[in-house]
Design a protein around this nucleic acid. Sequence first.
RNA 1: UGGGGUGUCGUCAAGCGGUAAGACACAGGAUUUUGGAUCCUGCAUUCGGAGGUUCGAAUCCUCCCACCCCAGCCA
Length: 565
Amino acid sequence: MTTTDSTPLPNFIRNIIAEDLKANKNDGRVHTRFPPEPNGYLHIGHAKSVCLNFGLAAENGGLCNLRFDDTNPSKEDIEYVESIKSDVRWLGFDWGDRLFYASDYFEQLYQYAVQLIKLGKAYVCDLSAEEIREYRGTLTEPGKDSPYRTRSVEENLDLFERMRAGEFEDGSRVLRAKIDMASGNLNMRDPVIYRILRATHHRTGDKWCIYPMYDFAHGLSDSIEGITHSICTLEFEDHRPLYDWFLDELKVYHPQQIEFARLNLSYTVLSKRKLIELVEGGYVTGWDDPRMPTISGLRRRGFTPESIRNFCERIGVAKRDSIVDMALLEHCIREDLNERAPRVMGVLRPLRVVIDNYPEDQVEELDAPYHPENPGMGSRKVPFSRVLYIEREDFCEDPPKKFFRLAPGREVRLRYAYYITCVRVVKDEQTGEVLELHCTYDPETRGGWSSDGRKVKGTLHWVSAAHSLEAEVRLYDRLFVKANPSGEKDGPDFKTYLNPKSLETLTSCRVEPSLAGAAPGSRYQFERLGYFCVDSVDSSDSKLVFNRTVSLRDSWAKIAKKEKK
RNA sequence: UGGGGUGUCGUCAAGCGGUAAGACACAGGAUUUUGGAUCCUGCAUUCGGAGGUUCGAAUCCUCCCACCCCAGCCA
């Protein structure tokens, strides 16, 4: 692979860290963290962040923590924390003994809030949610001070303690930071830092009825863990002054927040809200539907962790909004699988071929390497007999220009087998549909070579009818027909651009017998077709199910398309 | 009309005052028992625009334009 072992490409965060290291900031420590909220499944956009945070630590001899930002029990669930842990692990990263939760720090966070009150920098506010919104002002007009802003430290201390004790109703009071209601930055207009919320937390149960807000919990958690570089996405850029404010007011260790642009990928969506909509609306079969850009979906589709890591390195890290071409992700998985996937033969849409001059009961076991360019991968035997299947689209009665597959009177090579010539076409008299082909084979071409130097232009994949196994094959394509489904602000809903052909299920496919008992999750190249993996959910010994990870590049399709125009 | 960001090839993206890396995509060609893979070759006289500073600017200054984010007791 290309970029994995070479010197990492420069990006602005690597530059910052290099400078910090040179200046011996943080005593030369690099300590990052990946901080997901356990309220959904990880997707490829998260993979970018995972690779960034764990990667930056690893390449600088540092550490990266996995920390769940679990400050809102009403949206979070243990199911998500488990899936996130397994996805990060699958991607190839190790947090060692540093699995943390913001909820680990609830008591300490509470004490920090008390300290802020004592400093006169926080107060309990009795305004309702709607009133707080009104008092906040607008983007262009300053807000106005809450009437509770001037409460005494003693009263605030008492009230906050009673908030914790459960004396007040949900939503009746909040703790707010006392900053500046006239700030141009709305985040600084006395932001809420604690709310009353009676919800059972997946880790702390009913111990708490007040929960800290993100801005308060996040930076302080970073501080507690000794994080040096707190990397987050662009939308938190105007939270940075607040991030800094808490740390400065409390005079605690101060990590540096750095923001980068989140990943956008063409022909898909990468927002939790939209992905949930696809799952709950039944547009896909679940979070792990192979069409989903989730880590679990990509895994089930047949992507390798290596290919995803490589992709995340190649897309770079910057601050400008961008949409990465899905073709790059496809390139990354092809590049990886080209090297490691064993080659086998499978026929998706079988067309029966009878070799008229091949002995009725004869069967030959032909040798076929698993990887022509890597003999080390070994070989297997493929049975050849009188009745075969070839791909329907590899035969054309009236071939167009540049078509060099099978046609009446034409000779082609069957991969690793023999040259065959089509001598007769059997068609349905009614419909004209081609039912079967009769061919002759040249016994002198065993293995696919001819001693007389005769050239054939086409090589076809095939299986022996009697020996092949039936399989179901699911052909996946891009989930959306539009590069940027959510591109127009006031345009139609993103779901109107769903690709109706994103899944095509083929049930009468035939694959070579060596695939019997293929392990769930194992990946193969079906020669001339693409990369496929055994479905980890629906495949079994009695019923093989393959998912197409990605097709092979198809220059014939390009030529055919061009000729058509 | 407030605040915070960003604008370099079709798509990503280096570049940090010395004369536009690389990748994907695309287009040619070689090679090939996968129309795959591999290998060559081509692909921004120009960096959102206009001025200015300088021997020299994508890089510095000024003005303008476009796009993104922010008014959750979400993260």
